[in-house]
Design a protein around this nucleic acid. Sequence first.
DNA 1: TCTGGGGTCCTAGGACCC
DNA 2: TCTGGGGTCCTAGGACCC
Length: 397
Amino acid sequence: MFVSSDATILHADLDAFYASVEQRDDPRLRGRPVIVGGGVVLAASYEAKARGVRSAMGGRQARQLCPEAIVVPPRMAAYTAASRAVFEIFRRTTPLVEGLSIDEAFLDVGGLRRLVGPPADIAARLRREIREEIGLPITVGVARTKFLAKVASGVAKPDGLLVVAPAGELAFLHPLPVERLWGVGPVTATKLRQRRIHTVGQVARLGEATLVSLLGAGAGRHLHALAHNRDPRPVQVGRRRGSMGAQHALGRTPHSPADLDAILAGLVDRVTRRMRAASRSGRTVMLRLRFGDYTRATRSHTLAKATADTTPLLGAARALLRAALPELDRRGVTLIGVSVGNLDDSPVQLPLPFERDPGAELDAAVDAVRDRFGSTALTRAVLLGREPGVEMPLLPD
DNA sequence: TCTGGGGTCCTAGGACCC
DNA sequence: TCTGGGGTCCTAGGACCC
């Protein structure tokens, strides 16, 4: 695979994305600490981050750290629209765009030097256009490899631009803490720290064999390569996801098997709806569980044939759930999730499920959830997830 | 730190096939 | 008859990312 000898890969990463959209759309929020999400922090503005608020933090703790923060509910539709607009500017800049998530992407601008200019100029213009046209701050890292471009944007945040010239790669990389390496999370960082390894440079000097014995073959070789800035992966256009899922946290209150079944049905319906909208079908149903002690487990089943039809996928999910019920009974369940993997790309033609009358099963499902949650509106929210404006799903018999 | 909702990739054992 | 080597698929778990 061709790898440019020049720094031509951009990693573009929107800053505090959800919170920035909220500040853009409501002038009263600008310059103030903003937290998106209630029970748990989905995103925090930089004013809130300065006070120690982090995403995935519990809402109560966040409010203790920053009592004057303004907490706003998430508006996923607004974030999706903003993301689409930003990605249009990405693709206007270069056709070689690889999206990583709703708010970040790699761009390869290696072929544009003669036509448009050097990568640093392209990155600066990209930032300016997104600021002017979409109204959002974005940080861009520029380097010779994907990995280093991502590290560069992480270092340059927020609202920054950082170009790592090929001659200065290791001088930039080696003083950084190991946590900056892509793939080093809490577990790996702890293992390294126990060996008094704190910087990327120390990892680089360790030798591959030592890293492999410490972290296993895959992670060891991966880390060794990254510490020497070896990353041959090209920017890939049109990558499609390999699985689609939905999950629902339950809290600590006990749930009857009927409750769980109703929630499961809602989750499967949501996932298959999205699969049909994306023309994807899948073969492997995975049931994801979290227990009372917050340990996790998965159970999966693979069908003979890929489908996006609710009936067979829900049937498989139900069988997995039934088999797990005794364990859930013993340990308690705090989260239930379903995902469908082994997705293939074949277009899906299915009769619309909306034409059917609501069956007795749906009524039973609604009743079970309503008993638990009280209001019909909340029941709909539970069964539908959080997608607003979606009609009540009609579940198969 | 008492914890959402979406994903990716890797490892490893067992079944099964040639 | 007591035993090779290699490959793929399925299942489950774990670490990590945003």
